[in-house]
C-alpha cells in the first residue's frame, strides 16, 4: 500500500520551478534508455542514487520526497549522464537546481553550511593555514598568496556581493535563525 502515489500530492509549482533551469524540461522526452544511470559512477557505489528517478520525480512534482532525499547531495557533477543523454536532458544542471530549491526550503547539510561560511569569512572555500604558509615558503613563494588573503579591500568586495545576494542569510546557522 505504501507504494501508492496520490496525484494530489504532486506539486505543479515545484515542477515549474525546476523547469526554470534550461534543459530540465527535456525530462518529459525521457524514454527510459537508462544511459544516464548505467554510466553513473555514483550509482556504482550507491544503488539508491538514481539520477533518472530523481529527475522523473521532479517532472511529477514530487517535491517533498525529492527534497528530503539524502541522495540529492551525492552527485559529483561529473557530467557523464548529461553527455550521454540522447534527449538532451541537462541532468546535472537540473540536479543542481533541485538542490537550490532544497536550500531555499531550509534543507542543507551541515558540512555544506560550514564550507559556505568559510567563503563568507575568508573568500576561500579552502583558506590558508600555518602549515600551508610554511609550504609556500619552502617552494619559494611568498607566505600569503596574492588573493583575497592578501588584500583586505578585495575580501570586503566579496563579502559585500554575498550580502547583497543574501547568501549570508541563506547559509546562516539554523540556531541563529530561530
Amino acid at each position: 500500500m505504501s507504494d501508492i502515489i496520490n496525484t494530489s500530492d504532486f506539486d505543479p509549482e515545484f515542477r515549474k520551478e525546476v523547469f526554470e533551469e534550461p534543459g530540465a524540461e527535456k525530462i518529459v522526452l525521457c524514454f527510459n534508455c537508462t544511459g544516464c544511470t548505467s554510466g553513473c559512477p555514483m550509482a556504482d557505489q550507491e544503488s539508491e542514487y538514481n539520477i533518472r528517478k530523481f529527475l522523473r520525480m521532479a517532472n511529477l512534482g514530487m517535491k517533498d520526497q525529492l527534497l528530503n532525499s539524502p541522495y540529492i547531495w551525492y552527485c559529483t557533477t561529473c557530467y557523464k549522464c548529461q553527455e550521454r543523454c540522447p534527449q538532451g536532458v541537462k541532468n546535472v544542471d537540473t540536479m543542481l537546481k533541485i538542490r537550490t530549491i532544497a536550500i531555499k526550503n531550509g534543507i542543507m547539510l551541515d558540512n555544506h553550511r560550514k564550507v559556505s561560511q568559510l567563503v563568507i569569512k575568508f573568500g576561500h572555500a579552502v583558506p590558508i593555514n600555518d602549515d600551508a604558509k610554511e609550504k609556500r615558503k619552502a617552494v619559494g613563494l611568498p607566505d600569503t598568496p596574492p588573493t583575497v588573503h592578501k588584500f583586505e579591500d578585495a575580501l570586503g568586495e566579496v563579502q559585500k556581493v554575498i550580502k547583497i545576494a543574501g547568501f549570508d542569510t541563506l547559509v546562516a546557522d539554523q540556531e541563529a535563525d530561530s
Binding site: V115, S116, V119, A154, E157, I164, G166, F167, L170
Partner: peptide, 24 residues
C-alpha cells in the same frame, strides 16, 4: 590576479544559489 577569491566551486556554490555563484 590580485584580490581574486574562490572561483567559487561550481557544483557546490552554484547549486546553493546561482546568483551568488555567478556574481562571485
Amino acid at each position: 590576479l590580485k584580490g581574486a577569491s574562490c572561483c567559487p566551486a561550481p557544483g557546490v556554490f552554484r547549486s546553493f544559489d546561482k546568483i551568488t555563484w555567478l556574481a562571485l
